[in-house]
Design a protein around this nucleic acid. Structure first.
Lengths: 240, 240
DNA sequence: ACCTGAACACCGTTCAAGT
DNA sequence: ACCTGAACACCGTTCAAGT
């Protein structure tokens, strides 16, 4: 509304700003936080160098002082997401617990940042924050009696499932509803899902989409997936 | 080199074209094929309405006659990829074989179109071609004695792993090498991988990256992953 | 030397002008 | 009525001009 800000910048900018501490000196961390914030609120497509700049009240070119280019920026966001996976050191050295922790941690990140999922899956370069987490899991599984190749397969399996299980879902595009224990479709959600599919989709296939991508998966549901993988791993170990 | 084409279009355009049958009447299928071709050869970022248009020797706006907008185009490419998963009807009704077939089919698509991986994982809407494949797997697994929820979890697990197992890898960014059975790093590939990681990555973490994302995975390696999931599923069934 | 922002070569899509 | 392509509102990034 007010046009007063249009004048040449003054020191006041350092502490003002409607939505908080906008005028702070820019650093890499604040840059990545803002980027992630934009992704969370408006989707990956809205993540634009120019948009970040206006969000930070900064010249677009200033961003390039903290990040080589847009690809590096996206890598930075991914790095930041992985760093959320293991906020505390692990308490247990039991391999099953460590795998569950890894799976749940990764999946929690996906649930907290649903729009960032594709980002996590499209950048093959593993940031250091990911390698630290994976190294621990790898070491614990190896110590439990698996070969290095087996351990790698198991850890990769848990990570893959945690990452793309949520990517396969449409949960966040459907209206949120209180969980319906019966497993029967909530009518309103079913309508929304139907509208997401091609209009000529036959009813039995709509039903398949509902079954494969149920909205609002309970934690136990994902627990079942983790149990399955851990049980499979143990079975293959006992066989050798 | 020759500037002769610059004149007003003639009927000749319908059959000429340096690289083949460029002047054909455009239809949705040819459009999607060309789009996938561009993705395969130059990556997702190169997939541009304007680039497709020049590739097809067509006005950019003509594309919008076959596809609502760019998002719909991407959905179309994903639909086409899923339709490659099950080229023949299944011979077996045995649930383990069907799950393996699903996993391998999906993974083969990923291997054939490595750059398209992120695309498959970023479009939550499941195209009809995917639902058909998933429905069959779902039905067979249900008939094998699993509840619908269990069947859904198992099918989703296989799909997730097949999809993002390859997405986690960097294979296609490393120089291709004959497979090295020892599992020890090929020096040239190791150097390439190291350069992909942040320059200050400590050696033990480079090693983790190598272990988690080994280049040129053998088929047996993925077979181990599938066996693991199937064994886990059976274990959980026997328990109930 | 550092920082800025005008300018460039794109992009997806609208829409008015042609047939 | 259908088709076309000029024009619009963006985008990432370069680079010359400022301090």
């Amino acid at each position: 509304m007010a046009a007063r800000d249009a004048g040449s910048g003054t020191v006041d900018e350092d502490r003002a700003g409607r939505t908080g501490r906008r005028g702070q000196r820019l650093n890499r961390n604040r840059l990545l936080e803002t980027a992630l914030h934009i992704v969370d609120q408006h989707g990956v497509d809205a993540l634009t160098m120019r948009r970040i700049a206006t969000e930070l009240q900064v010249d677009p070119m200033t961003i390039y002082r903290h990040v080589k280019n847009k690809d590096a920026l996206l890598d930075g966001v991914v790095e930041q997401l992985w760093s959320q996976v293991w906020p505390q050191g692990p308490d247990s050295e039991e391999w099953k617990a460590v795998l569950s922790h890894l799976g749940r941690g990764l999946r929690d990140v996906m649930m907290r940042h649903p729009s960032a999922g594709p980002l996590l899956l499209s950048r093959p370069v593993l940031p250091g924050s990911a390698l630290v987490v994976l190294k621990h899991a790898l070491d614990v599984v190896k110590d439990a009696g698996f070969t290095e190749q087996e351990a790698a397969t198991i850890v990769r399996c848990v990570s893959s499932v945690a990452l793309s299980d949520s990517a396969l879902r449409v949960t966040y595009e459907l209206p949120q509803r209180p969980h319906n224990a019966s497993g029967e479709p909530d009518p309103e959600q079913l309508i929304s899902l139907t509208q997401l599919l091609p209009p000529d989709t036959p009813p039995d296939l709509v039903r398949v989409a509902w079954t494969i991508c149920p909205p609002l998966e309970t934690d136990d549901d994902f627990g079942f997936t983790l149990d399955l993988i851990v049980a499979g791993a143990e079975h293959l170990r006992n066989r050798a």
